[in-house]
């Protein structure tokens, strides 16, 4: 190869390596921040019902920090090269999506849409070709939330909240119906969707236990009307 060609190749390669290093540093921050979010949300399993809103509120500033990471990364990615680099942060992005989805659920007991998650994480429309929240990442975040919810249903009962599993059950069934509509490849999402079935089964078992012990009977009447759960 003549030396001009070689220099060009070297320049291209150096560029790539530099960019990769820079993204890596930001992703490492992003990762730490999403771990904080997950750590905080993990407290749900020992939080009494009445303290749930306070817990949700406490996580919001952490999500804001995640959106700083998102913005920093997006600032680095060249136009049209989203898919070239996204493998580096998709793990963290899914964790952040989980955080946004769960906080929203804790506050509203509704599902935050993909656009909603994008907005919480500060992903801008004009980044269309460099940083977006793909359906796949959103769905991974959603499954993580359901995983957490099946554990929550169990612990809520331990903490004396017999309504929670029922509300979770109704919500999760809708999510499951949604997932059933997808045609998945034999990939990670498919595997995780299969795991979702076990979460639903677990939740159903808790509902079964609780219903048959008629523990949920008395407080039910007032609780139902307020619950914004879809049906």
């Amino acid at each position: 190869m003549d030396s001009g060609d070689l220099e060009q190749l070297n320049a291209l390669l150096d560029n790539e390596i530099d960019l990769k290093e820079k993204i890596k540093d930001f992703v490492s921050d992003f990762d730490k921040r999403t771990r904080r979010v997950q750590g905080a949300l993990n407290k749900i399993h020992s939080t009494p019902s009445e303290d749930v809103p306070r817990l949700a509120r406490s996580v919001k500033p952490m999500l804001d920090e995640c959106s700083l990471s998102v913005s920093a990364i997006a600032g680095l990615v060249p136009e049209f090269e989203y898919w070239r680099w996204s493998g580096m942060w998709s793990f963290s992005l899914r964790a952040a999506a989980f955080g946004a989805l769960f906080v929203h659920y804790l506050e509203t007991e509704t599902l935050l849409s993909l656009e909603g998650v994008s907005s919480v994480l500060g992903i801008k429309d004009e980044w269309k070709h460099k940083f977006t929240l793909q359906a796949e990442d959103y769905l991974h975040g959603l499954i993580t939330m359901v995983n957490e919810m099946s554990r929550w249903a169990v612990n809520a009962v331990t903490l004396g909240d017999y309504e929670r599993p029922i509300r979770i059950s109704i919500f999760v069934k809708s999510i499951f119906a949604g997932f059933s509509a997808l045609n998945l490849k034999n990939d990670g999402l498919r595997r995780r969707f299969d795991s979702l079935k076990y979460d639903i089964k677990k939740i159903e078992e808790v509902v079964y236990d609780v219903s048959l012990r008629r523990l949920a009977n008395s407080p039910k009447k007032e609780g139902v009307d307020e619950s914004p759960a879809p049906r």
């Binding site: 029922i166 109704i170 078992e205 509902v207 609780v210 219903s211 048959l212 009977n217 139902v224």
Partner: peptide, 30 residues
């Protein structure tokens, strides 16, 4: 294992699936 889990739960309350399901449904649906 899934069938086992169902059987174990049911065993605590009796054997009539349909009746139990009705009770649960009432609880959930209000």
């Amino acid at each position: 294992e899934a069938a086992y889990a169902i059987a174990v739960r049911a065993s605590e309350y009796g054997e009539n699936d349909a009746m139990l399901a009705d009770i649960v449904e009432q609880c959930v649906m209000g």
